[in-house]
Design a binder for these strands. Structure first.
Length: 497
RNA sequence: GGGCCGCUAGCUCAAUGGCAGAGCUGUGGACUUUUAAUCCAUAGGUUCGGGGUUCGAGUCCCCGGCGGCCCA
């Protein structure tokens, strides 16, 4: 527990602000009143009086609130700038002849940058033409006990993430990012609702580890006295829903993967997964393009989005589709297919300085070559189709080419944004694949899935031919805004201070 | 996991191994049209933590923490 008088150890500026709070209390003025009059938001004032000419009094009184971000105090006339939750700024003026000597002195001595204040007064424009509220009275709305960082120098990236609340206060773009994310998620939901998909929630706590290849977080249930896994994917439950007749189903929710944290990976990340009965990966390809274009339009008003650094990304029109082996062949300048033998693939790897893990299958090796040689060039959105079957255990075999599966990955800006399959629905083949996975898991592969008998039982009741897709919400934000993943997540996980 | 870089005042950053500084912020004062206001004065430090070398360490060495970049 802190000592009864913690003030001794505090920096001077925090002691000063605490003493101002005490002085307010001593004067009988609540530093944190339960409410304040507010008849208009700053943006409403700005909108309504946008045409007010320079140096004019409107005759209209308003009560406004906001956070103080600039203070320019004079002898008998004080200026300050308030900022609203939506980022709108508005100037307030306090003059001796309007508020009186005591209120003006209190304003100068008890108010700091960062305080939330309320102003009641007349809407006017200053001699320089700045729209302002000329105060009759002012009131403290919430006294800030910590100083605001310098408004004109960017906060360090670490402080931005660790103290997002400060980042949100001082950096309008941080708030815009929150709004953009909300807009994108809402747009996705609307896009799917319009196409008659139902949104469901499936278990986050799972008895078995499956649905993707990733290391899970493990937790423990006291009631069941058993370990549980935080889900790495909702896939196996959404498919159970499709078996049960929920023919168009989706979930937007968090997945957890106990793996590395870097500029494009977060241990918890939001994902959209959607399944549609009597559809396949071709149908999903067209739909995903539409959903992303609709999200781009919702957030940017255009299918050409402008990143915060000013670069443009064109998401308009029909996106190109290539095959994995076709694009790899083009990059190598040599024809490779799913039947190309290992020695030849290994030769290409060596030629391009790619070290080869001997445990890799031929398919995995081809995919690694592709990621190394082709992916960095995929800036405009591009669908890459038809992956080797060793790397896609839940995917249906390609209807024409043996050894391939009906899977595509969507790449944008050099990273993978979404994926889709014609889902594997034959319960016998599914069991073979999952048994193979569980043997890998038993052999110590921490990413391999466990055998989910209940999932297989569901499949044995008959699953319709189904197209399924998954897309990282955080990554979609990255694609639309150009931000790193830790900027698209409001409160990313950070190491303890 | 490996390599490199960084951590100094509330914030952003300086400081050949030799008195730890600036700008903004804060405090006191001047100013009735400012808007990153201006002017005068002034306060503010466990230099990430621990150990070592040295007459002397923010600076050099070792261990650890946190962060960033690159590689695997």
């Amino acid at each position: 527990m802190p000592a009864t008088d913690p003030a001794e150890d505090l920096p001077e500026q925090m002691r000063v602000r605490r003493s101002k709070r005490e002085r307010l209390l001593a004067e009988g003025v609540p530093p944190y009143p339960v409410n304040l009059p507010r008849t208009a938001s700053l943006s409403e004032v700005r909108e309504k009086y946008a045409e007010l000419p320079t140096d004019t009094a409107s005759g209209d009184r308003v009560a406004i609130t906001g956070r103080l971000i600039f203070i320019r105090n004079g002898g008998k006339l004080c200026f300050a700038t308030l900022r609203d939750g939506d980022g709108t700024e508005l100037q307030v003026m306090l003059s001796l002849d309007k508020v009186g000597e005591q209120a003006l002195a209190d304003w100068k001595h008890l108010v700091d940058l960062g305080d939330l204040v309320g102003i009641e007064g007349e809407v006017i424009t200053s001699r320089r033409g700045e729209l302002s509220v000329l105060a009759d009275t002012w009131a403290m709305s919430a006294k800030a006990l910590r100083p605001l960082p310098v408004a004109h120098k960017p906060l360090s990236e670490e402080t931005r993430i660790r103290q997002r609340y400060v980042d949100l206060i001082v950096r309008p773009q941080a708030r815009e990012t929150v709004r953009a994310r909300a807009t994108v998620v809402r747009s996705l939901r609307e896009s799917l609702f319009r196409r008659n998909f139902l949104e469901v929630e499936t278990p986050m706590l799972q008895l078995l580890h499956g649905g993707a290849a990733a290391r899970p977080f493990v937790t423990h249930s006291n009631a069941l006295d058993t370990d549980l896994y935080l889900r790495i994917a909702p896939e196996l439950f959404l498919k159970r829903a499709v078996v049960g007749g929920i023919e168009r189903v989706f979930e937007i929710n968090r997945n957890f993967r106990n793996e590395g944290m870097d500029s494009s990976h977060s241990p918890e990340f939001a994902m959209l997964e959607a399944y549609q009965a009597y559809a396949d990966y071709n149908v999903m390809q067209q739909q995903v393009q539409e959903w992303i274009q609709e999200a781009a339009f919702a957030v940017a008003g255009s299918h050409v989005v402008t990143h915060f650094d000013g670069t443009e990304l064109d998401l308009s029109g029909q996106w190109p589709a290539v095959t994995l082996f076709g694009s790899l062949s083009e990059a190598l300048g040599e024809e490779v297919t799913v039947t190309t033998d290992r020695a030849q693939l290994a030769g290409y790897a060596e030629k391009h300085d790619l070290s080869v893990d001997p445990k890799w299958s031929n398919g995995k090796l081809a995919e690694e070559l592709f990621e190394h040689l082709v992916v960095p060039s995929l800036q405009r959105p591009t669908f890459v189709r038809d992956y080797p079957e060793e790397t896609a255990p839940l995917t249906r075999a390609h209807r024409e080419t043996p050894g391939l599966t009906e899977k595509w990955d969507l790449y944008v800006s050099g990273f993978e944004l979404a994926t889709a399959y014609s889902e594997l629905v034959d319960p016998v083949v599914q069991r073979e694949r999952l048994v193979a996975q569980s043997l890998l898991a038993a052999g110590g592969d921490p990413e391999a899935m466990q055998l989910d008998e209940d999932f297989l039982r569901a499949m044995e009741y008959g699953m319709p031919p189904t197209g399924g897709m998954g897309m990282g919400i955080d990554r979609l934000l990255m694609a639309l805004t150009g931000l790193g993943i830790r900027e698209t997540i409001l409160f990313p996980l950070v190491r303890p201070e």
